[in-house]
Design a protein around this nucleic acid. Structure first.
Lengths: 228, 228
DNA sequence: ATTTGTGAAGGGTTTCACAGCG
DNA sequence: CGCTGTGAAACCCTTCACAAAT
């Protein structure tokens, strides 16, 4: 059994012809389009949509062209139709059950996050190792002890696990998630997780984001002593 | 005044020759190296370090080669020395003051996050629009009302702002941060922020990460009915 | 003998610019 | 005339493979 660290899925998008970079932007377009639809906008041009999504118009059109020819030349895109098409491509027309491990401040923030309940994601479980937290109800879901993790995953066909534990517990939790059948992991703990092939891991790391900003901050203060 | 949305800094790394992709990985190496140093490891090879960081050895060596020739052939890299060099390149030898806007669960999680206090980042302020939260102390910092935002930024020379507010407030807060002199923003609200040129924005979006996982989940269930 | 540092090759992504369609 | 869809070019990033160094 090969144990790659932080498995990527680089070529998995090959079959559909939708690149990883495009997939990462589709949720942004989807959010903008949803908000446009709620405002009663019926059609939108690539220029306007790109502006609202923070990308260039050419990139947007190329991205959308990968899901089909859904625009009308001289007019633009039908907002409702695009919402549906992007949702379909992203797999949001299906239902996914997720489990959140770790119910500290971060876990609670995640559980209460609106984006989880909506759009096809259901919080099937909320577990913690600390028995003093077990039994409380957060965002309508009762916190269970982490001992019940495997049962919850099996009972609710959970395919996505969210790790919001301290770093020291993350790899153990990840192993248990994978062993119990979870094939996608969203990791908020500041560690590099090792997972078997076929399991996707995405990492969100606050301190890494800050350090990247620091790099750019630093170089802003060095302005002026440029070339010739 | 040009108002680009979600300003990137693609070519700003040009001057040093360190690419954006490399900068994004340096914090990962730094974390692994720090942990190795604490374990008393003195030197490490590119193979071992790459394994622990979840990247290929060639990529790691190319990344490190951009900061200088700090390895010893036949031996590897000196752990302590690399820690220092990466810290220096990332600008972590300087001190940055940050302000966190929004003290809900997420804001509290961020304030309490260890990675903030350490490594050159100081939480200079914690503000919220809700007066019922003002006055409480989180991770040793007293919560102030958002009216004091500008004063805090000026008094403490804050250069990095963290937005942990609801989506509806995020653009307003961002405008105020930028107006008060903040040049880097870490945004947790699910909106695309518009900022002037010269301001860096990084976005962390939970629901986008989930949707990307959903895309890959979806295609895992379509295994088997391949080509022809 | 071992491991780094790096040209060169290979892939992937973005941008350009315009043909094609409504 | 306006806007989409898309080859082609440009750019960036990764991977390979090996010479150079200890």
């Amino acid at each position: 059994m090969t144990m790659t660290r932080q498995a990527a899925a680089p070529r998995s998008a090959r079959r559909t012809g939708i690149s990883e970079a495009t997939v990462a932007r589709l949720p942004v377009y989807l959010r903008v389009l949803t908000s446009l639809a709620e405002s009663g906008v019926a059609t939108v041009s690539s220029d306007v949509l790109a502006g609202a999504a923070g990308v260039g118009p050419a990139k947007l059109r190329k991205d959308l062209s990968h899901l089909g020819s859904y625009g009308t030349r001289g007019v633009g895109y039908d907002v409702e139709f695009l919402v549906y098409q992007i949702s379909r491509v992203l797999g949001l027309t299906q239902h996914y059950s997720i489990v959140i491990v770790g119910v500290g401040n971060l876990g609670q923030a995640l559980a209460g996050y609106g984006g989880f309940g909506t759009r096809g994601f259901r919080v099937a479980g909320l577990v913690d190792a600390d028995r003093s937290r077990v039994g409380s109800v957060i965002a309508g879901v009762e916190v269970k002890h982490v001992d019940e993790l495997e049962r919850i995953i099996a009972d609710d066909a959970v395919s996505i696990g969210v790790i919001a534990t301290p770093a020291s517990a993350a790899q153990d939790v990840c192993d248990r998630l994978v062993e119990a059948g979870v094939t996608s992991v969203l990791n908020f703990a500041p560690v590099v997780l090792a997972v078997p092939d076929g399991v996707d891991v995405r990492k969100v790391d606050l301190s890494i984001e800050l350090q990247i900003l620091a790099f750019h901050e630093q170089r802003k203060s060095l302005v002026g002593q440029g070339a010739s």
